[in-house]
């Protein structure tokens, strides 16, 4: 009974937060609405008995939204929402597509013959996850690790102001880097 109550509270809050993300004028408020929604997602995962993953989601989303708020202030033309303005395109077409997607998903969810629950969860699902990631799912784990590393490199390459072609010329043949301030000792 209590679980039902928690589920409905979190579900309604998650959906309401998700809707409000695209209705608020203020970007900061939109970020917090998204944070609310994703924290409720983490809460639902906790409710399902995945303690570790739920806590990971909650922590990650909190930090992520804090970073997102900083980027909002940096790049958005209207971060505080003081001038009401809409920056949307093709609202009607998107609404039709999304209603269709939701209807198709809901029909599949309600009509599919879901299999009965097989097996019982072990006392420690986190242990299961760890053994799985370090055993049969090792390839998944390694792929994730490599993609995260590639992301680190790619983000730095994209975000840096002066790359090596700016510093060493187009053919990379310059002997000394062309920097505005020379580095090294005894400059």
């Amino acid at each position: 009974m209590l679980d039902d109550l928690i589920f409905w509270a979190l579900a309604l809050l998650a959906v309401a937060g998700g809707v409000m993300v695209f209705r608020f004028d203020s970007m900061a408020r939109a970020t917090y609405a998204l944070l609310t929604s994703l924290l409720c997602v983490g809460g639902e995962v906790l409710l399902l008995g995945l303690d570790y993953l739920g806590v990971v989601i909650v922590l990650m989303m909190t930090i992520e939204m804090a970073i997102m708020a900083v980027f909002m202030v940096m790049y958005m033309m209207n971060p505080a929402g003081l001038m009401p303005m809409t920056m949307v395109h093709n609202k009607r077409g998107a609404a039709v597509i999304c209603t269709g997607v939701f209807a198709a998903l809901a029909a599949g969810i309600l009509l599919a013959p879901w299999p009965a629950r097989r097996g019982r969860s072990s006392a420690d699902p986190t242990m299961d996850l760890g053994l799985s990631l370090m055993g049969p799912q090792m390839l998944t784990m390694m792929t994730l690790g490599f993609s995260l590393f590639a992301t680190i490199v790619a983000t730095v390459v994209l975000a840096t102001r002066r790359g090596r072609y700016d510093r060493f010329g187009d053919d990379l043949k310059a002997r000394a880097a062309d920097d505005p301030v020379r580095g090294g000792v005894g400059r």
Partner: peptide, 16 residues
């Protein structure tokens, strides 16, 4: 599914 559809709507409509 509801969260997915709302997110899809945002990803399709938002310009920023």
């Amino acid at each position: 599914a509801a969260l997915f559809s709302i997110g899809l709507f945002g990803a399709l409509t938002q310009q920023s």
